[in-house]
Amino acid sequence: MLTPSEPIVAMPTAGRILVLFAHPSPVRSEANAPMAAAARRLDGVTFVDLYAEYPALEIDVDREQQRLRGHDVICFQHPLYWYSTPAILKEWQDLVLEHGFAYGAGGTALRGKVFFSAITASGAEAAYCAAGYHNFSIRELLRPLEQTARLCGMTYLPPFALFGAGTAVDEGRIHAHVADWVRLLTALRDGRLDMARAASLPRLNHDLDGLLGAVGAALEG
């Protein structure tokens, strides 16, 4: 019997990564576009532009389920819209995470996989707390996704988040963020991420060096 307090995968394992990218206007994107371009180039990462593949939101359920079966790490990459995903990712969840596939009787297809979100938010990080403008932390706001992952038997990792995304280019923060993104995906692919520690963080890029370094040291020791 599995409970939320007991993550399914405690020790890191090497994995094939599926990035499900959702941006309804990618030509105007400043942060997600370079992240997407970097993810596309990585070996071991399958990059899917959902709006490009299903411009009329007619999602091919069989194809998407096949994709999920073929990967170990599932990532939603998107800008934060109303504290949630853009519409197509919600539609994707409604259609693809079927009873008998993702949950319920016989629904074991996702069991043991890792799930996380890579989001960009326009607000500053300080605004995402009890005392701030948005009242909740980013991890709290993404609770529906966290519970969805758990119901499907997946290990949930906190989001890899970029705050103040609208001004990130002007302030020269994009380059470092994309570099972190590539490091994170590479580490997940090669099984070098400390999952247990990652699961407890407010966000994945809170202490990326620590997450990657600790495992490296543990493996060497």
């Binding site: 949950y103 009787a105 074991t108």
Partner: peptide, 11 residues
Amino acid sequence: SGESDDGPTAP
């Protein structure tokens, strides 16, 4: 009731 062992269940 936690009876199913087909798929993951909530507590």
